[in-house]
Amino acid sequence: MIEIKNIRKSFGHRTVLKGISAEFKDGITNLVIGGSGSGKTTLLKCMVGLHEPNSGSVFYDERNFTSMNFEARTHVRTEIGMLFQGSALFDSMNVEENIMFPLNMFTELSFKEKRDRVNFCLERVNLAGNNQLLVSELSGGMKKRVGIARAIAMNPKYLFCDEPNSGLDPKTAIVIDELIQEITEEYRTTTIVVTHDMNSVMGIGENIIFLHQGTKWWEGSNKEITTTDNKELNEFVFASKFMKKLQK
């Protein structure tokens, strides 16, 4: 479980996060949603330590990540997998080298064991046999799937996904969403997905946090989100004509 307490973050005079507290349970897909500029990605980066919050704390299974030194954070980070918005694959390496990279760095496994793990991860994301492809040869959806394979290579306890569907066609986006949910349930990871994609919200949003102007505005599930009377959330959820029709 990950718990955040009163996270505040400012960039110069601009306050992006205004004291956010939340709990993210393991084994379910936690979604952080909100409009552009609402602070979703900043919150995610504060949680994984890419940004230092001005105040507040992040707890990974009751371990205070915010107050840890570099070495202690390194230990926690080996338990974290992250899928980036642009996949962030190392473009100087092929698919196999990308997935094997954390294994090379942090394990003493033999090459065969590492290759077996790579093949397992690739099979898990339906990309078996694509080991030698270069990053530049992959489509957007394949990059996301390799990103997931790299994120799960070290058997993470915590999985973070920053807009996993951005730039993907609806069909591929659903495949990625389902993959994230399957991995979450299978390995009981604490999964946090930052998104503004309504298909993801309705499809995999077991626990949803809605951010508005840097504050936690609403929390609930995908079953509750369509029936809430929260004005700002309704404006976000039913922004498209299609959703408006659905609402009527």
Partner: peptide, 14 residues
């Protein structure tokens, strides 16, 4: 700018 450095840091790499 392509977040590859962020990816290294998330993995716990200096």
């Amino acid at each position: 700018v392509t977040e590859q450095i962020d990816a290294l840091e998330i993995m716990g790499i200096n």
